[in-house]
Design a protein around this nucleic acid. Sequence first.
DNA 1: ATGCATGTTCAAGCGCACTTGAAGTCAAGG
DNA 2: CCTTGACTTCAAGTGCGCTTGAACATGCAT
Lengths: 102, 102
Amino acid sequence: MANSLTIGEVANRSGVAASALRFYEVRGLIRSARTAAGHRVYERSVIRRIAFIVFAQRVGLTLGEIEEELAKLPENRVPRRTDWARLSASWTARIDDRIAEL
Amino acid sequence: MANSLTIGEVANRSGVAASALRFYEVRGLIRSARTAAGHRVYERSVIRRIAFIVFAQRVGLTLGEIEEELAKLPENRVPRRTDWARLSASWTARIDDRIAEL
DNA sequence: ATGCATGTTCAAGCGCACTTGAAGTCAAGG
DNA sequence: CCTTGACTTCAAGTGCGCTTGAACATGCAT
């Protein structure tokens, strides 16, 4: 357990399938280290990152757009409350614009 | 022109491809009458309905969910501002819940 | 009357976001 | 030693939301 998680643990805690986690890694959305045996090892912070991805998807962003949003995060690679708030705000702004067009 | 629109006119005004409009019709999201020649004829109100569909998709609803939302509209089959507002409100509530979970 | 745009149906194809299956590796327990 | 189970890669398959192509009909201008 220590301070790292296996892909199975991350899948359980995040509710995202292991196959999806591997897919996100190929797409560059998350990263992992490897054990000597080649097994993926995740930092605990990856959970927050995954929660952010799931949330962003839920509100209609593509994985490409989510990648861009994550790239905007400065130094710290973990999305914080303010990042969620920013995404949420820009999203509701989009909605308001769309309604205004009507 | 009169009070009806061809599929091409609807496509131009809504920004949605004619092929997509036919697809929406098969899915039961919109309806059309036919000319003697078998060409689709739309009421002008379909534009609002399509705008609602596009908007709902943008915020992450599937066509199935959109169908349910449209089914909730009572007598008048055209979504009004209040319908948009309701969808928007329930959706931002879901977002806030999601953020609260974090 | 002859084009040419615009419309029709139906079947197949495509991009996205994964999932599933096959075949294999490795660590721990009986 | 050998099985069990969690992991690995890679290729192919799936469902959604359309798009594209083929083959054909119709409507309007020259």
